[in-house]
Amino acid sequence: MEAVMTLDDKVRAYKELLDRKDELEKQTKANNEQLKNMEQEIAQQMIDEEKPDTTVDGFKYSLQEKTRYSKISEEKLMEKGLVFFDVLREQGFGHLITEKVDPRTLDSAMNNLSAENDGELPEELAEVLSVYSELKVSKRKANTKALNRAKAAKGA
């Protein structure tokens, strides 16, 4: 017969999963950094050994040069008196520009608006938003300062 977990046991298991998630994120970040470094070492060794490709364990690895493009900082654009989107449009790349709303930012803004309006949204917004509730479990460090002070005072 399987033992039933108490609420406290489930909360402890939940905390273990949260801690594992944090650890996995750290491990993923470290792994990605190691991958990047190893890739650069392999590329350099391929260049040094004048061997642009190699086959290992049934997989072919080859040296490739890829050119990447990214927008310069807003500060540098301002120094040049340029507006990035305007330049893209002028050069025929306006189709690359998309309007986007970050879901977390939208959620936060609508929560604030709803709180200011007794839990209601203006009809125009309610028509274009999916509104639903979900149960979540909040985790915060317990405030034990008062208990610790009481224990200290009793022991003094």
Results as ranks from 00 to 15, higher is better:
residue 47 I to R: 10
residue 61 Y to Q: 06
residue 51 K to F: 10
residue 80 K to S: 03
residue 70 S to P: 04
residue 49 E to P: 02
residue 53 D to I: 02
residue 63 L to V: 11
residue 63 L to Y: 08
residue 80 K to C: 11
residue 56 V to K: 03
residue 68 R to F: 13
residue 51 K to W: 04
residue 69 Y to T: 14
residue 80 K to E: 11
residue 54 T to A: 10
residue 74 E to Q: 08
residue 44 Q to H: 04
residue 69 Y to M: 15
residue 50 E to C: 00
residue 69 Y to K: 14
residue 84 F to N: 02
residue 55 T to L: 13
residue 62 S to C: 11
residue 75 E to V: 06
residue 44 Q to D: 13
residue 44 Q to E: 14
residue 48 D to S: 14
residue 51 K to E: 14
residue 68 R to N: 15
residue 64 Q to I: 15
residue 48 D to R: 10
residue 51 K to M: 14
residue 84 F to S: 02
residue 68 R to T: 14
residue 76 K to P: 01
residue 73 S to N: 11
residue 71 K to M: 04
residue 67 T to G: 03
residue 56 V to D: 06
residue 64 Q to N: 15
residue 57 D to W: 04
residue 55 T to F: 07
residue 57 D to N: 10
residue 47 I to N: 07
residue 76 K to L: 14
residue 84 F to E: 08
residue 50 E to S: 11
residue 80 K to G: 04
residue 66 K to I: 12
residue 56 V to N: 04
residue 60 K to E: 13
residue 64 Q to E: 15
residue 60 K to Q: 07
residue 74 E to M: 13
residue 56 V to F: 06
residue 50 E to D: 05
residue 44 Q to F: 11
residue 60 K to C: 06
residue 47 I to Y: 04
residue 59 F to R: 15
residue 61 Y to C: 07
residue 50 E to R: 01
residue 56 V to A: 06
residue 83 V to L: 02
residue 59 F to H: 15
residue 46 M to I: 13
residue 45 Q to R: 08
residue 46 M to G: 09
residue 49 E to T: 11
residue 50 E to Y: 00
residue 67 T to Y: 05
